[in-house]
Design a protein around this nucleic acid. Structure first.
Length: 484
RNA sequence: GUCCCCAUCGUCCAGAGGCCUAGGACGUGGCCCUUUCAAGGCCAAAACCCGGGUUCGAAUCCCGGUGGGGACGCCA
């Protein structure tokens, strides 16, 4: 049974890079009918917070990436908070010492820092010089007697570690480039390497899918698995998401938290689709639009690319529009509702007696909107009778001589119309223009400005039809009197 | 500095030695549709980083260079 995990540290919100890593884990679990575990790596007490944990959970929920085991879901390894398994981590460190694979280090952080900076000044890299590996039994006894604190370091053996990365293929590290890393801090807190490996062993994780930035951590962790005689999982290192400047995506590139995209009016469906195709491809075939479940049906780690990918918001916009076009209209209505409420334009009858009307308006608006937040500004004149007139448009389209007269004629003609459907309205408007020797297009522009306040809108006849007799009459009436 | 990863249109991908006159998508430009704006349709410009090999044949394999990215913490 395949078991994967997403293990964020709650030191920030769920950003797009983490979201994609989570997505790949989720997709693989779905595809292989495995288990997706969510584990919060909160061992950095200083920077972790409950608020961030919630933020991450919210992000995952928004994307629809549900976890089988983890916070709120529970599971056989609960609690799924790393900091609550300190004792097991410490026990592993002790075990490693007992096995002769780790040793106490009495060097102080200050001493280490001094050596490291000295080496850097001298212009080279530095690795721990194993001072404490050479301590005599007497020295150790003396240090312990004086109560001197110690960290625990893993003893890196000579040799090389190689692993077959699922996205990069074989990768090899010479241990000469690894130093005896700390697994237990002098205050008794386990470090990242110890905690992850301990937890991944405990939770029987079979596939570790994580960011490329962890690739150089992998040999250290494999060494830990080996020292514990534990089965080593498969690794898949996913390339990073870059900003337009090819630098690692960060705050200065704008939105980086997935919930920020939610607030901006993006659909989770679009975000999932977009993210899935950033660095992954289903192979040959031109298809790009997928639902989350369709992706789960075809996803495979072998399709993950080795190179980093640049985040392209314009493509996200396109995915968003495509997914909005494909949403059942009732669903679109519920998605868009919060924006109407926020603008103070929501009315309850939009979901009851005027439901069909509301749907029809959305249908008109959606090919014109890239994001959910655009429905309000795009269709404001449908929901608010106080029009925001574009003065230049008024001057240009409503003041040419004679327009007022034609508008008056239209008003009368419209009142006698048996039906208010677009086709009938079109015949009426064009006929009125013709009868007065006015170009239909000029008249259409004039009517549009009179009725919407703007020069751009969905097709005028659809607009008139949906606005309805009373509102059209009221809006036209004003200009029939005052126009040119 | 050391180690690691990567390298096809501006961007995201396809391409797993001859199917490549290098394909698709976003974006860009043009045309069509059209009352405006979108959507939609059609067309166009746009790339195999460089140099060596291997091979009858290389975008595809190997080596080197260059470029980009990442990692080198008692952070995760």
């Amino acid at each position: 049974m395949l078991r994967v995990r997403f293990a964020p540290s709650p030191t920030g919100y769920l950003h797009v890079g983490g979201a994609r890593t989570a997505l790949f884990n989720w997709l693989l679990a779905q595809r292989q009918q495995g288990v997706f575990v969510l584990r919060i790596e909160d061992t950095d007490l200083e920077r972790s917070s409950d608020e961030m944990v919630e933020g991450i959970l919210d992000g995952l929920r928004w994307l629809g990436l549900d976890w089988h085991e983890g916070p709120a879901a529970g599971g056989p390894h609960a609690p799924y908070f790393q900091a609550q398994h300190l004792e097991r981590h410490r026990a592993m460190a002790a075990d490693l010492v007992r096995r002769g694979r780790a040793y106490a280090c009495y060097c102080t952080p200050e001493e280490i820092t001094a050596k490291r900076t000295a080496a850097e000044v001298a212009g080279g890299g530095w690795k721990y010089d194993r001072t404490c590996r050479r301590l005599s039994a007497e020295q150790i006894a003396a240090f312990n007697a004086e109560g001197r604190p110690h960290a625990v370091r893993f003893l890196v053996p000579d040799g090389t570690t190689r692993f077959d990365d699922l996205v990069h293929g074989p990768i090899e590290f010479d241990h000469a480039n690894l130093d005896d890393f700390v697994i237990l801090r002098s205050d008794g807190q386990p470090t990242y390497h110890l905690s992850v490996v301990s937890d991944d062993i405990e939770m029987q994780i079979t596939h570790v899918i994580r960011g490329d930035d962890h690739i150089s951590n992998t040999p250290k962790q494999i060494l830990l698995y080996e020292a514990m005689d534990a089965p080593i999982p498969r690794f898949a290192h996913v390339p990073l998401i870059l900003g337009p400047d090819k630098k690692r995506l960060s705050k200065r590139h704008g939105a980086t938290s997935v919930m920020e995209y939610a607030r901006q009016g993006y659909l989770p469906e679009a975000m999932v689709n977009f993210l899935s195709l950033l660095g992954w491809s289903p192979g040959s075939g031109d298809r790009e639009l997928f639902t989350r479940d369709e992706l789960a049906g075809v996803f495979d780690v072998s399709g993950i690319n080795g190179g980093n990918a640049v985040f392209n918001q314009e493509k996200l916009d396109w995915f968003n529009q495509q997914h909005m076009m494909r949403l059942p209209i009732a669903e679109l209505a519920t998605r868009v509702k919060p924006w109407f409420e926020q603008a103070g334009l929501w009315r309850d009858d939009y979901s009851t007696s005027r439901r069909e009307w509301f749907f029809a308006v959305l249908e008109l608006l959606r090919p014109r909107a890239k994001r959910l937040d655009e429905f309000v500004p795009l269709g404001r004149f449908f929901f608010d009778d106080t029009l925001d007139f574009d003065e230049r448009a008024v001057a240009k389209h409503l003041y040419p001589a004679g327009i007022g007269e034609v508008l008056q004629a239209l008003l009368v003609a419209l009142d006698h119309l048996p039906s208010y459907d677009p086709a009938t309205l079109e015949v009426c408007v064009r006929g009125t223009a013709d009868a007065h020797g006015l170009k239909a297009s000029a008249f259409i522009h004039a009517v549009r400005v009179a009725v919407t306040g703007r020069t751009v809108s969905p097709g005028l006849f659809d607009v008139l039809s949906l606005l309805g007799r009373d509102r059209v009459r009221a809006r036209l009436d004003v200009w029939a009197r005052s126009a040119g």
